[in-house]
């Protein structure tokens, strides 16, 4: 077991262990830091969503809390003008490539984009950026759920669950740059892929990209391990 460490988040004294990632310590203690790509249990954080910035005392630039290892007497602020600016910018960038229209989104009650907007007082609309074109098609070939890529934020939670937890590997990242997508091998439909419809990716998805069809939510849906415990 690693050594205990006392740290300060927004001035609050918190007990943690050295080497833990700050993001998880904060969330465990009820302090919210926006995040999408963070996966508990994933040894090497992806660091791709760029939302979990915090300000470390004695450090001029904000750092991502998912990669920040706790050391004793570490002191961080979850908000600062620089942090707020980066979070606001990253959030608007994600929205510029995300089909809005929350009213008819199946995930509107559990959407983490909405949660971030609420927590940080951000608008769910584009203020300075144009909406980027999306050619995404909706894959509703699976029996129990739908994959709507136009709402995917590329956090990678579904990919991790599918590959590392269920070990099916039906989903993966493909292509580069602005064309990066979550897809199946050779872009076949989910029904043609190796998907076993365990439904865990749907529960892991923070946005409306993966959602259960009406009345198809499995009764014994497991607790998604990427966010749990």
């Amino acid at each position: 077991m690693s050594k205990p460490a006392t740290i300060f988040i927004d001035g609050r004294k918190i007990d943690a262990f050295e080497g833990e990632k700050l993001l998880w310590v904060a969330l465990r203690n009820g302090i919210y830091i926006p995040n999408l790509c963070a996966i508990r249990g994933k040894e090497h954080p992806s660091g791709s969503c760029r939302l979990c910035y915090v300000q470390v005392e004695g450090c001029s630039e904000p750092v991502t809390s998912c990669t920040l290892s706790v050391t004793d007497s570490l002191s961080v602020q979850t908000r600062s003008p620089q942090v707020d600016r980066l979070v606001k910018s990253a959030f608007e960038l994600l929205l510029s490539h995300h089909r809005l229209g929350c009213r008819d989104c199946a995930k509107r009650k559990s959407c983490e984009l909405l949660k971030i907007a609420k927590e940080r007082g951000l608008k769910m609309k584009l203020t300075r950026l144009a909406l980027l074109d999306q050619e995404a098609e909706v894959d509703d070939s699976a029996e129990t759920f739908v994959f709507d890529r136009s709402r995917c934020v590329l956090c990678g939670r579904c990919v991790w669950i599918c590959r590392e937890v269920i070990k099916v590997g039906a989903l993966g990242f493909s292509r580069r740059g602005i064309k990066r997508v979550v897809t199946t091998f050779q872009d076949v439909s989910l029904a043609q892929s190796g998907c076993i419809e365990c439904g865990l990716c749907v529960e892991a998805c923070p946005s409306g990209a993966l959602y259960f069809k009406e009345g198809k939510k499995p009764a014994a849906a497991g607790q998604c391990s990427c966010r749990g415990g």
């Binding site: 969503c49 760029r50 990253a90 960038l93 510029s96 580069r176 740059g177 602005i178 990066r180």
Partner: peptide, 21 residues
């Protein structure tokens, strides 16, 4: 750089695209 972006992180994937536009 926009074409060569790997697309992993939000700023590079989307930020460079908006800048280029």
């Amino acid at each position: 750089t926009q074409q060569e972006s790997c697309g992993k992180c939000t700023f590079c994937r989307l930020g460079t695209k908006h800048m280029l536009d």
